[in-house]
Design a protein around this nucleic acid. Sequence first.
DNA 1: GTCTATAGGCCGATAGAC
DNA 2: GTCTATCGGCCTATAGAC
Lengths: 213, 213
Amino acid sequence: MARPTHASDTNTALSKGAQTILEVAEQLFANNGYNSVSINDIAQQAGVSKANIFHHFKSKEGLFMAVLKIACERSVQALDATPSQSPVQSLDPLRNFFSSNLQALLAHPRSTRLIQWELLMNSEQRGKRLAEEVFTETFNRVVDLVRDAQSQDLIKSEIDASLLAFLLVGINGFFFETRAVHDHMPGIEFSVSPDDYSAAVFDLLAHGFEKTN
Amino acid sequence: MARPTHASDTNTALSKGAQTILEVAEQLFANNGYNSVSINDIAQQAGVSKANIFHHFKSKEGLFMAVLKIACERSVQALDATPSQSPVQSLDPLRNFFSSNLQALLAHPRSTRLIQWELLMNSEQRGKRLAEEVFTETFNRVVDLVRDAQSQDLIKSEIDASLLAFLLVGINGFFFETRAVHDHMPGIEFSVSPDDYSAAVFDLLAHGFEKTN
DNA sequence: GTCTATAGGCCGATAGAC
DNA sequence: GTCTATCGGCCTATAGAC
């Protein structure tokens, strides 16, 4: 195999060992963040030696970046996989995106958490920009959907499309990141069915909570 | 001074050195998380020796807990400081809380970020429960406000009070935690004035985005 | 591609002088 | 209450055999 070692190139096929390392690293980094996880931890849990990790990845940072890159790609793929039927004169495209987006977050919790860690870090280095790009791409997608609906007179024209898009993306993000707390909180039942949550929130946003007597 | 060393008791007066240590530790932990910050970092930036930190706090964990405890207390105090005029037959109490809550988050960014770190960690140990309690307390406060408004026929009775409260708290939280990204994102102008943001969001939630022809 | 062994440094924490 | 000096351990990363 005349393959270049230190695969920063994640598209080509990886050896079984490298794959295992990536999967274990993703899980540990997603759960505990970068600095809490040592190469030793990853090596032990992956059943390989420490040195073997440095054979496949040039450094701990390199390994992390590889893992984060995969997570970001998955996240954007999930974005493209969402149905975007066009000629329907209804709010369905926006509603579907909102629902699918939450499903995607929940379907890949490790990727989602990795991106969260990176957004919380204030180090301008490493993959923060990568995570920001994913976030921004999702956001822009929703802005377009909102603008479409506005041009079809389905959404009030005086509403800031960016603001509504921000709310939709943020509401899903916040749902994801507080999942672990929901069980400890009284009266939260909407958490058991993300689909119902999506539907209820979308309905609330569409019609408003204020009673008009 | 016959004071017990290792002040886990944060109410009594602390020496100037201990105070400095707490402030520096809060800043560093808030920015970088627990494991990324070493006692050496804190000592250097606080202008004291490493050993001096261990004189005032029994361990790194102890120091972190002291910092987090202060942050949580500040957060709850901000909660109590919000005006809660009662006999007004309007949505103002809820609107005021929503606006004040965001102001409080932004006024104490280090406390807010510390709590975020702790919520993101999956270690059941340490201060996660402390952070959860703060989050839950805020949430419960809003639920009560929503129920009040519902009993005054100001909010649609069919709306789940927990859901609306969750949205209000979450929307502020998400605004805070994505501040750093806003500048890199096209079309986000509502970020420049949190007050305007609060007002616009509350209005959108109250009346809905859907155009009713 | 995988291993053992180890280098060299920083970690949290302690001892003990002042 | 503050310091210097130091301990034992774990860290990232490398050397080199197989």
